[in-house]
């Protein structure tokens, strides 16, 4: 099975893309989860869908091909992320309101552009649930570029991102510029979401950002450990998901998410087992 992925060009593109997003999605996801912004990933993925639908629409109606749906998706996602930040500023006491506003806005625009582009087709289906065969060389290169940018910026600003996520007030007092760092973070999140959609699809992209993190949170002692463990779980889910998706002819979005959930359940089980064992030992020692 793995041999197929190395042999056929289109499968190899998919496989390499999968490996890339298996790193960057859980990496950004770690910060998204600890900042309690998991749902923002969902809102942004729906805005990305609007961008993709827009891309498909202009491709079809005006035969414009230099803007691929991935680019228009990215543009929408980044604009959506800026709107979310603005809305969170407007509704300071009800910051989560930004999520349903942006999410429904994204879905609304998607419906409009999809029908303008003459409705559903396989292309759109691939964007919704991911695809093993739809990744072009062009897509691979744009996702590779995004991955390099994301890794570089997270590496450079790791300590600021981490410090702000833990205790924003203290970070501000100590002189960290929270606004630009937060802005950087939300833009990176938007880019990662747009990049991941090719493989996992709009509806399941937030799962690849949050489920591996949820699993490693149960097992890791520290933040860095959690980050690396999340990436390991993310990669495992992507590789197994792509292979099984290809083998059973199922969109990989579905298989990747189901495998992520299995990993999550196992990690909860391992943690429970560990706690019980400690309790038993404590009982034996008579404490």
């Amino acid at each position: 099975m793995l041999a197929d992925f190395l042999e056929y060009d289109f499968l190899r593109n998919t496989f390499l893309t999968g490996l890339l997003i298996g790193i960057i999605a859980p990496l950004l996801g770690t910060f998204v989860v600890v900042r309690r912004l998991s749902l923002i990933a969902d809102a942004l993925s729906h805005v990305t869908l609007a961008g993709i639908a827009f891309g498909l629409f202009i491709e079809k109606k005006f035969a414009i091909t230099f803007i691929t749906p991935i680019y228009s998706g990215m543009a929408f996602s980044v604009i959506g992320s800026i709107f979310i930040e603005k809305l969170r500023g407007v509704y300071k006491a009800y910051q989560e309101l930004a999520i349903p506003i942006i999410l429904s806005g994204g879905v609304g625009l998607s419906v409009i552009f999809i029908s303008l582009a003459n409705g559903f087709n396989t292309d759109l289906f691939n964007y919704l649930f991911g695809s093993v065969s739809a990744v072009s060389v062009k897509d691979l290169y744009s996702i590779l570029t995004i991955s390099v940018i994301v890794l570089l910026l997270v590496g450079l600003f790791y300590k600021e991102l981490f410090t702000l996520s833990f205790d924003e007030e203290h970070a501000k007092i100590s002189g960290i510029h929270s606004k630009p760092i937060h802005f950087l973070f939300i833009i990176l999140t938007a880019l990662v979401i747009a990049a991941s959609i090719r493989i996992v699809g709009v509806l399941l992209v937030s799962a690849l950002m949050t489920l591996p993190v949820a699993a490693s949170m149960r097992l890791a002692k520290g933040f860095k450990q959690m980050m690396f463990l999340s990436i390991a779980f993310g990669e495992l889910a992507v590789i197994m998901g792509l292979i099984s998706g290809y083998y059973f002819s199922i969109p990989p979005g579905g298989t990747i998410v189901v495998i992520s959930i299995v990993i999550l359940l196992l990690s909860i089980g391992i943690k429970k087992f560990k706690i019980n064992r400690i309790r038993k030992q404590v009982n034996i020692n008579g404490y």
Binding site: V34, L156, F157, K159, E160, F162, T163, S165, F166, D167, H170, A171, S174, G175, I176, M217, A220, K221, G222, F223, K224, Q225, M226
Partner: peptide, 27 residues
């Protein structure tokens, strides 16, 4: 504070140095 935040004692204390070390520099 966020009780569930997965950070070690070492990592929490290291955050005190973030601003002092400054942007684009490492531990």
């Amino acid at each position: 504070f966020n009780k569930g935040f997965p950070a070690t004692v070492f990592e929490v204390v290291s955050m005190g140095l973030t601003a002092k070390i400054g942007y684009l520099k490492f531990f």
